[in-house]
Design a binder for these strands. Structure first.
Length: 196
DNA sequence: TATGCGATATTCT
DNA sequence: GAATATCGCATAG
């Protein structure tokens, strides 16, 4: 499993969202290493009214404006965290939401962090993903292409067919096909119609 | 399987 | 006040 370099990452948001399918996300914490295969992403492109960067840079969304490959972590619905990968040139706000992982390393650690019953649900959905990987606001702004405690790595196994769909849980810009996922993977989130 | 709802904090209007 | 890139539990079919 090799660390991804920034030069490996496409500069365009939607292209990055597609590129990340099959790649690995690795978390090194006190309890040990956890990692997973990225199987579901969503692109929040420049000028997208549903994106958090829409309306300009603030204290909260600053990380979306960093050079591509940085983490943007935020609290949603008062109780869950979500993590994005910043995706454009410095000063342009956009990101790729990581929605689901197929767990690889440290499954027992993930289970200890989570209250989910089924193993397939451990990192299924953006809130469960951050719970299983112990990701919170303290990791906001870190460089996922550096030697940090959260980083991107090459694919443990190449992806199968990558499909697109509408994005989940938004009310604006609902028609755009900016969700990317490995078709048929049992660890996908969303309704069954959006997993084929 | 599908739909509905409450929990809960931060940001925006 | 309202909205929110969610989740887990409840209930109905």
């Amino acid at each position: 499993m090799k660390r991804l370099k920034r030069a490996d990452l496409p500069v365009d948001t939607a292209t990055l969202a597609y590129f990340l399918i099959g790649k690995s996300l690795v978390r090194d914490a006190a309890e040990g290493r956890t990692s997973g295969r990225i199987i579901e992403t969503e692109a929040y492109v420049p000028g997208d009214a549903s994106g958090h960067a829409y309306g300009g840079e603030t204290d909260r969304n600053r990380s979306l404006f960093l050079r591509r490959g940085h983490a943007y972590v935020y609290l949603i619905y008062g109780m869950h965290f979500c993590v994005n990968v910043s995706s454009e040139r410095p000063g342009i706000g956009a990101g790729v939401l990581l929605r689901a992982l197929e767990p690889i390393d440290g499954v027992a650690i993930m289970q200890a962090r989570s209250r989910v019953h089924r193993a397939a649900d451990l990192a299924r959905g953006p809130g469960r993903l951050t719970q299983a990987m112990a990701i919170d606001r303290r990791l906001d702004g870190i460089d996922l292409c550096s030697r940090s405690s959260l980083w991107l790595a090459s694919a443990a196994r190449p992806p199968g067919r990558v499909a697109t769909s509408v994005r989940i849980g938004i009310s604006k810009e609902r028609c755009r096909l900016l969700r990317f996922y490995e078709a048929g993977n049992p660890h996908l989130s969303g309704p069954s119609a959006l997993r084929k």
